[in-house]
Design a protein around this nucleic acid. Structure first.
Length: 500
RNA sequence: UCCCCGAUAGCUCAAUUGGUAGAGCGAGCGGCUGUUAACCGCUAGGUCGUAGGUUCGAGUCCUACUCGGGGAGCCA
């Protein structure tokens, strides 16, 4: 009977057939351990010499990693086996034998893996990331659909800019210049006046020259937009939404989170209410003695770790030099050395960046936008996501609603994920007063004619409304504990870097 | 656009500070009936990113370039 690895639990003590790929194999004389993957999980299949034809045993003993195979055998519960079940092989077939598969089950560098991205997707880690991403996207749709939002697909080719025009990809559209979308927001505002609560979800393109672990030039963003709401309503929506996503991943992908080394205990704490700070409070924190001490503490921790690593390296090297070690001991040392050296480079970078980031924070002046490192500092100080609201209007986009109590700031917010990952949501109330909006368009030097339809929304039944955008890859990175956003999308596009 | 780091075997990394290039994994062959990135033995595998320069001698020092990584500004 044909089945999948994830379905094995329903077939204990039955003979089943799996179709998949050879993930890894070990031989022990007359025993062959075949680790098979089939897209739903991993399963160890044990082939015993004598229980299958000798030719078959020999064929599989020399079979290369990632050969496509089908395996038939008796399914049994086995605690020593990955996934808890294994197959006692009675028959097997090679569909396509692979030789010299480039990605071995050992350490590889980023560049090598990216150049082999089409194969790298088969690795456990990438598979787990893909499963979590799938759940995140499903949870996003479910949340909005179950909360009376209507999906509106906004265009990819756009005629007007949402944020700054310098960050747009220009395309030649039958001799007319259009841009790839960097937000569906302006279109969504129009739709919100028809449906009340709407959202769009699709790829987003930004030509920012940002070469960091937080940036892609093509990424996926979901944007809800709500009529008749206020800033507090948006914050509540945001915290309920993000908490729901995290809950769903905890329910559906616990084994994947464990494999990825995510901080599950921390994720279980993600529930409303999140922390709330105004921009002014955040600025006070950044320039306070508390931050000076916090940064010094961090640096101290890094220095201590560095000293520990260095000492351990010295110990191992001395042990190796002394000689007379068993082979397995030598190898264990070699492996530990590689790990320690790699961690040492990481810690060195942190030590190098710490004073720079501390200085950026200390030199922070009211009126500037918060930088990535500033957000990281605030993020590291909290165990739950943090909302930062009411930024200076000069630092923000023209469409954000001016705070009627304090004209220097706008009713906007960012949501900063904890543990140092940084911003995952940016949003705001939108300026709903026609004349104020027109004045902002003039101030920015934009052509009012291009925004005529957008201004119309303020002429015909304008209402208080707002929304936000959540970056899918950043959310996946935060939840899984992945350091780099490029691992959170199958085929990443980065500034100056498109592999395949 | 700017700053920092790197490039040595198919892969991941060493080379005692300028003196003839090493290890593990992977590959090939052999051994082992419960392995968990299995283990043990043997074999093959290199124009040290490119181009110049310093030197009796350069993987190691200098210059330029190419490619890669990290960060700043900006942002999801």
């Amino acid at each position: 009977m044909k089945t999948t690895i994830i379905g094995l639990k329903n077939h204990a003590a039955e003979e089943v057939t799996l179709s998949g790929w050879l993930y890894n194999s070990r031989s022990s004389g007359k025993l062959l351990f075949l680790i098979v993957r089939d897209g739903t999980g991993l399963c160890q299949c044990v082939m015993e010499k004598g229980k299958v034809p000798d030719e078959l045993f020999d064929e599989f003993r020399h079979l290369g990693q990632e050969s496509s195979i089908s395996v038939t055998g008796l399914c049994r519960e086995e605690t020593r086996s990955v996934g808890g079940y294994e197959l006692a092989v009675t028959d097997a077939k090679v569909i396509c034998a692979a030789t010299d598969y480039p990605i071995t089950p050992k350490a590889h560098g980023v560049d090598f893996l990216m150049k082999n991205r089409h194969l790298h997707l088969r690795s456990q880690r990438q598979w787990c990331m893909g499963r979590v991403r799938h759940t995140v996207i499903d949870a996003i749709r479910r949340f909005f659909n179950d909360n009376d939002f209507t999906l509106i697909d906004t265009p990819i080719f756009t005629t007007i800019a949402g944020e700054g025009e310098q960050t747009l990809f220009e395309v030649d559209y039958f001799d007319r210049k259009l841009h790839l979308t960097q937000t569906g927001q302006l279109y969504l505002e129009s739709a919100a006046m028809s449906f009340g609560k709407v959202y769009c979800f699709g790829p987003t393109f930004r030509a920012e020259k940002s070469k960091t672990r937080r940036h892609l030039t093509e990424f996926w963003m979901v944007e809800p937009e709500v009529a008749y709401t206020d800033l507090d309503g948006l914050l509540q929506l945001g915290e309920n939404f993000v908490s729901y996503i995290v809950q769903r991943v905890l329910e559906d992908n616990r084994p994947q989170l464990e494999t990825l080394g995510a901080d599950i205990v921390a994720l279980e704490k993600i529930a409303p209410p999140f922390h709330r700070l105004t921009y002014t409070q955040a600025a006070d924190i950044l320039t306070s003695q508390k931050t000076v001490e916090f940064m010094a503490e961090q640096l101290d921790g890094f220095e201590k770790r560095k000293a520990d690593i260095k000492q351990r390296i010295t110990e191992i090297e001395a042990e190796d030099k002394k000689g007379g070690l068993k082979k397995w001991r030598q190898e264990k040392n070699a492996k530990e050395l590689i790990e320690l050296r790699s961690e040492l480079t990481d810690v060195d970078v942190k030590i190098e960046n710490n004073p720079k980031h501390a200085k950026l924070a200390a030199d922070f002046r009211w009126g500037k936008d918060l930088g990535g490192s500033d957000e990281t500092i605030i993020s590291l100080m909290h165990d739950k996501p943090v909302f930062i609201t009411h930024y200076p209007k000069e630092a923000k986009a023209f469409y954000m609603r001016a705070d009627r109590e304090n004209d220097k700031v706008v009713e906007n917010f960012d949501m900063i994920a904890p543990a140092g990952f940084g911003e995952i949501i940016g949003g705001s109330m939108r300026e709903d007063d026609h004349d104020r909006l027109l004045a902002k368009i003039h101030n920015e030097g934009y052509d009012p004619a291009a925004y005529e339809w957008y201004l119309d929304l303020r002429k015909y039944g304008s209402v208080p409304h707002g929304g936000f955008g959540l970056g899918v890859e950043r959310t996946v990175a935060w939840i899984t504990g992945e350091k780099h956003i490029r691992q959170c999308i199958a085929f990443p596009r980065m500034m100056d870097k498109v592999y395949i």
